[in-house]
């Protein structure tokens, strides 16, 4: 039985006075041991992940209801999505999940250089995911402008109109697949098509926001790792940031087939 004394308050790092930060980490004053703190934080994160799943459950439910109500609109709308970009992004996120898991393992084994490399690569994958989403998926649908390196551009008749120093090429009769009030009915294949785009943009943008939050969390871990905050005996933040990242990955794995593969 440990008797806690209030005098320990405010000194999670109390002994020994030398060595890297992680080796000096004891625990927050209201816990009895580092293990207890670690377990508590992990339980908290799992509960939070449960709330995230429920949050997206609402979107999945809306998807199911509107798919049932307007199957034709969903059929037509989903044809505008390119499974290749979706698939590529899926692969990127899967790889990033692997590097994230590896960084935790590296931290546990004290391989700090590899840990930082893995963390940095995970963030890079997240950034790549968002970039692809923006440049190759949102932009053409929103405006009709395709990125010049987009392979899909060659399937369409290039109107010759360009933007941003020729980096983007305009395709006639393609854009206007925007959410809500910006939807362009001139190109609509079905009167209820905007509902499909409403679900698509809501789900993917909320997911992309989660990717950005995950990148921020991992970025914080990366920065703090340079100061020696994490090591074999104290890697709580690395672990729970990893848990969050896996959730972001997992939700995409459900979104991808529902949006891109089912027609």
């Amino acid at each position: 039985m440990t008797t806690l004394d209030v005098r320990q308050h405010g000194q999670p790092y109390d002994a020994p006075p030398s060595g890297p930060l992680w080796s000096r980490y004891k625990h927050a004053h209201h816990y009895r041991s580092a293990e207890e703190e670690f377990d508590a934080v992990k339980l908290g994160m799992w509960l939070f992940l449960a709330t995230e799943v429920l949050l997206f459950a609402g979107l999945f439910c809306a998807y199911a209801v509107f798919r049932m109500l307007y199957p034709q609109a969903f059929y037509n709308g989903s044809h505008y999505l390119d499974w290749k970009w979706g698939g590529f992004n899926t692969v990127i996120l899967l790889i990033s999940s692997y590097t994230m898991a590896m960084s935790i393992r590296n931290c546990q084994r004290g391989e700090f250089r590899r840990m930082r490399l893995n963390l940095a690569f995970t963030i890079f994958c997240g950034a790549l995911f968002v970039l692809i989403k923006l440049v190759f998926e949102y932009t053409p649908k929103w405006s009709g402008y395709f990125f010049v390196l987009d392979p899909a551009l060659h399937h369409y008749a290039d109107s010759g109109k360009t933007a941003l120093f020729g980096l983007f090429h305009y395709v006639d009769g393609y854009g206007g697949k925007r959410p809500g009030m910006w939807f362009n009915y001139a190109f609509a294949s079905d009167p209820y098509e905007p509902l499909w785009w409403g679900v698509y943009y809501s789900a993917t943008s909320i997911h992309a926001l989660h990717v950005l939050i995950g990148m921020t969390l991992i970025g914080r871990v990366l920065l703090r790792s340079f100061k020696g905050h994490y090591g074999p005996s104290h890697y709580t933040a690395v672990e729970i940031s990893g848990l969050y990242w896996h959730l972001v990955d997992l939700i995409w794995i459900f979104l991808f087939p529902l949006l891109y593969l089912i027609h």
């Binding site: 609402g58 979107l59 209801v65 109500l69 959410p179 785009w197 409403g198 809501s202």
Partner: peptide, 28 residues
């Protein structure tokens, strides 16, 4: 979390006119 996503979608609907719940926009 379920009311969270509901209210968020309601805001999307009110601001961006995305049809989710409003029958005038095809929502339910």
């Amino acid at each position: 979390p379920v009311i969270g996503i509901t209210l968020l979608l309601l805001v999307f609907e009110r601001v961006f006119r995305v049809g989710i719940f409003d029958p005038a926009l095809g929502g339910d």
